[in-house]
Nucleic acid binder design. Structure first.
Lengths: 101, 101
DNA sequence: ACAATACTTAGCGACATTGCTAAGTATTGT
DNA sequence: ACAATACTTAGCAATGTCGCTAAGTATTGT
C-alpha cells in the first residue's frame, strides 16, 4: 500500500483544519467522545439547536474528513470517532513549533 | 487581567482553525519559521505565486488570529511568529483525545 | 518638494459554506 | 402492502472567502 503523496496529504490537512474550524463540528466530536465514542445521528441531532439536515451535513463533512466513520444499524446511522486524521494535524503543529527541516 | 470567557475562547479556537485551514497560510507560517521566525512582508510575498495583496490579506488573517505579530521597521513590516494561540488548539485536541470532562 | 519603495486597503467577481424547508430513501412494524 | 421511523439529499438565500486589479498610505532617498 503506497503512502499518500504530498498533494493528497496537503489536502487532508486542509480538510481536517477546515472541518475543525466550525464550532458545531467541534462540539459534535466532543459530544460523541463524552458519550463513549459512538452515537446515532438522531442522538447527536437531538443535542443541538440547529435542524436535522444541518447536523446531517456536518456529520458528512466530518465523515469525509475521516474524523467520523458511519455504520448502518437497522434504520439508524451510528457515527464513531476515528481520530487518526488528527495525527497529521498534530504532526504539522509539532513541525511548525520545532522548526526542523 | 481577567481570563477570557468561554465565548471568546470559542471564537479564538474557531479563528485559529480557520486560519490554519488555508494551505497558503500554513506555508507562510512554515516559511517564516524556517527563515528564523521573522520576515518582512516583501520577503514572504516573494516566496509565493499569488499576488502581493493576496499575501497581505493572509498575513492580516494570521495577525488577527494572533499567530503572527506585525512590527514596523522603517518602510518594511516585519512579521514574527507568535505561536501561543496554538496552545488552545493543542489543548482542544488533547481534550478530545483524552475524553476527560 | 518629488520620486521611489514597501507595503495596505478597497472593491469586484467567482465560488464555497451554512442555515433553512421540502422531498426522497431505506428499514421496521402491522 | 402501508404507515411510521430515521435518516439523507436537493435546492435555495444569505453570507463569507479568495483571487485579482487599482488606488491609497507611510517612509526613505535626492
Amino acid at each position: 500500500m503506497a503512502r499518500l503523496d504530498a498533494a493528497a496529504r496537503l489536502e487532508q490537512l486542509t480538510a481536517a483544519f477546515s472541518a475543525l474550524s466550525h464550532p458545531t463540528r467541534r462540539r459534535i466530536l466532543l459530544v460523541i467522545r463524552f458519550r463513549g465514542g459512538a452515537m446515532t445521528a438522531g442522538d447527536i441531532a437531538g443535542r443541538f439547536h440547529c435542524k436535522w439536515p444541518t447536523i446531517s451535513r456536518h456529520l458528512r463533512v466530518l465523515e469525509t474528513t475521516g474524523l467520523l466513520v458511519r455504520q448502518r444499524e437497522g434504520r439508524q446511522h451510528v457515527y464513531r470517532l476515528s481520530l487518526q486524521s488528527l495525527r497529521r494535524v498534530k504532526e504539522w503543529i509539532r513541525w511548525l513549533e520545532a522548526g526542523r527541516k
